[in-house]
Write a protein that binds this DNA or RNA. Structure first.
Lengths: 216, 216, 216, 216
DNA sequence: TATGAATGAGTATTCATTCAT
DNA sequence: GATGAATGAATACTCATTCAT
């Protein structure tokens, strides 16, 4: 179910000689630390509320040294947002394409949506709250992904209705919004001790979306 | 159902002589325009992304002149957030205290929650996304309101379970989170043409929360 | 003969009521001081070698306060360059259009060229040495003026040849270059005590260009 | 007539064994490339407008690697300026000391002055426009060379007057300035396609300085 | 009420330079 | 000989805020 996370430019990892791989690995690892720090700070204070100094301090590094790893704060946000949105669509596509009954698909979709909140919450939260701060081009690309995700989800509900698995009067668009809103709630509860365990959210949210609160 | 809105300096409105009242009214009206502008700009760019210049420009006013109306940007945020959160709790308290069956209460609560999004979306959205930027004191107060709101909502679900109206295995806390997440979805869809009409959201969200998506 | 200097936006000076005029005057005067300071610093250290701090210090002002008067260092350079190039073309056009014999026109042209070096040397020098640092648009405009000036000057020589006043084998293009190079020499000798008095340069340069060094 | 150019570490070239010489040659060649790149970049953007990164990029080299070839940007400028001013004085000294009539000497001096613009324009232009950015010591030395050059040139004119070859009322100082200004015009026309061929400038400038524009 | 001028601290970013490898 | 990583100071510019008028 699309665990993934972000394994940056690992491509042809084995093609390179060991030594080179090691060096590359070191550099990549450091780079990852830097982007991680950016994600954390962005998630904590918001993109505009976070300064490059904040990021540097967290790395015990000089402010300007960051620019060795990314060309601008904007670019860092872009990288974080892309990683934050990654896998959502792919995972959902696999689920939608699968053979399972509609109800199971919804359950799988909830799990697919919530897992990244456990894996890399700072990336996802930054994507959710600060994607509007992205520079034009990236905003558009990332926005397209979002819309694709929503369309898939809406289709999932619509197909459930068509298959007779969901109520015939179900408003697929509304259901899609409720699904996303519900799942993204996990983003607001981040980092605090008050957070519910993820598995409880996954099960609970799926039950609610499928069966609702009322007795039958 | 609790229209309210923010009629800020309503206090002792009638205590003052008519003339004075008129002048006060003018002043108050201007003041309102200023806070409105702040809310709009905060909602558009986020608190940290918005500058006092942005606010002043929207009012066709000089940057420094704003400070005649509020003592600091922080204070403006505070005022906006307070207005953004106002009525939510009062409305929900009235509903919870009422005699209606649990299902009807949920429907009423959805309406109570979504109405402010129609009335003063910029205030609500600023509250939702930027309350963490509030200065300590205000953040705590506003946080207390939030927690009170959540507690009320959770109680509403719990009482429904106890009364046999809701599934006995319903996780009231999870249901509360889903409720809020679902309803706050209205905030993300703001301002764009793609927004769904409010009444469709109210009905659809309530149906989903109560009956779920699956056929019975 | 090239009175000018730069009397910025003095337009319809008398149309406005006295009071307003006074205030406007004050603002304009301050603005002028700021641009003057920029011109001086640019002339002294070159555009890239000069920092906005340098400019501010010279005005006993805070660095950021400069931006009340111009929107960017680039813009300040543009204003300085425009003022530095102003009047050159107009003056030369008047001379070229006039009825005087070719030799007298050259003399007048030398005076026209050198006068701004006396009036506002920092502006002219900045234009001469740093116009290439101008942002695209302004560079083009200012470059067009330069080319127009050169074309006029070359025509002046060419017409002198045609009229029989100048040697028939005179290369007008080369003569134009020599003229400009010679006159711009005044820019290199700026500010230092070793500067020759302007009138001596005017007379001497004109004599040389017309009669050369050799005995007849 | 003083072709020269800069064969920097020519000293004790032959003292070393052939093999070493070869290696040294390689090193020297690389070194030359580096200084060449610096000269080009300085000429293009001005000393302060050029960054060490610009230089490194042009060499497809890492920024820090430059410091293997020069100890500081200042030092690179110094080397470029010294090479830019080299030979001017020596060449002129030879001409002044020679037996030719004054007019011929002027012609020779024009050629002497313009040749380096063909040989190593980036060096000469950097010297002309950025020598003021040199560190104190070098600036003084280079300034002394300049003054010596001017003095020689002025003497050349003065001796021409004394010898009756030049007009008795010729202002030698003014003539010297005109000479230099005229010849340095070649520096402004650099790199662009609009440049005149050097030989045309040499002949034309010399004619103008000697005979002037007017008919006799 | 409001403006225009200014401040002082802060922002992202660039730079020349260093140094272990 | 050269690289990659880093530094520390400087850069242009923005910001919230103040205050005399």
């Amino acid at each position: 179910m699309a665990p993934g996370g972000l394994k940056r430019p690992t491509t042809d990892e084995m093609a390179k000689p060991a030594r080179r791989n090691d060096v590359e690995g070191k550099r990549a690892r450091r780079r990852r630390q830097v982007i991680d720090a950016a994600a954390t700070v962005f998630a904590e204070k918001g993109y505009h509320g976070a300064s490059t100094r904040d990021i540097a301090e967290r790395l015990q590094m000089q402010q300007g040294s960051l620019y060795y790893y990314f060309p601008s704060k904007d670019a860092a946000l872009e990288e974080v947002c892309r990683a934050g949105v990654a896998d959502f669509v792919e995972g959902l596509e696999r689920i939608v394409a699968g053979p399972a009954p509609a109800g199971d698909k919804i359950r799988a979709a909830v799990a697919n949506h919530l897992e990244p909140f456990g894996d890399r919450p700072d990336y996802v939260r930054t994507f959710l709250f600060d994607r509007h701060a992205l520079p034009r081009g990236a905003r558009r690309e990332v926005g397209a992904l979002s819309r694709r995700y929503e369309a898939l989800l809406e289709r999932l509900f619509a197909e459930g209705v068509a298959a007779g698995a969901f109520r015939p009067d179900l408003d697929a668009r509304v259901a899609m919004l409720a699904f996303i809103g519900t799942c993204n709630m996990a983003a607001m509860r981040g980092r605090s001790g008050e957070a519910l365990p993820l598995h409880r959210m996954i099960a609970g949210f799926a039950d609610l979306i499928l069966a609702g609160a009322a007795v039958r």
